[in-house]
């Protein structure tokens, strides 16, 4: 469980790896780490996009203050 890829997977998981995951080769550990990172990025960007879309429905005059209030 000592490879760079396993350390990366632990970082992306934000928790210790279950023991058996130490037996994965580096390429597979890297694949999982990459999938986790991408899933998190997609989720966060999807939520940010949904907030932006919702703001377009706020009347133009109020949009900026509402946006600032949500982003602060």
């Amino acid at each position: 469980m000592g490879t760079e890829e396993h350390a990366l997977l632990r970082t992306e998981l934000r928790a210790p790896l279950p023991e058996a995951f130490g037996s994965l080769d580096g390429a597979r550990a890297a694949l999982l780490a990459d999938a986790l990172r991408r899933a998190r990025e997609r989720r966060l960007s999807g939520l940010a996009e949904a907030v932006e879309d919702a703001l377009t429905l706020v009347p133009a005059l109020a949009r900026e203050p509402v946006g600032r209030m949500l982003q602060r």
Partner: peptide, 20 residues
Amino acid sequence: FRERAVAALFDDVPGTVDRI
């Protein structure tokens, strides 16, 4: 692993969502 991945994904919520 899947349960920890759920926590890693869903605990990471932008502040905007909590303000909404």
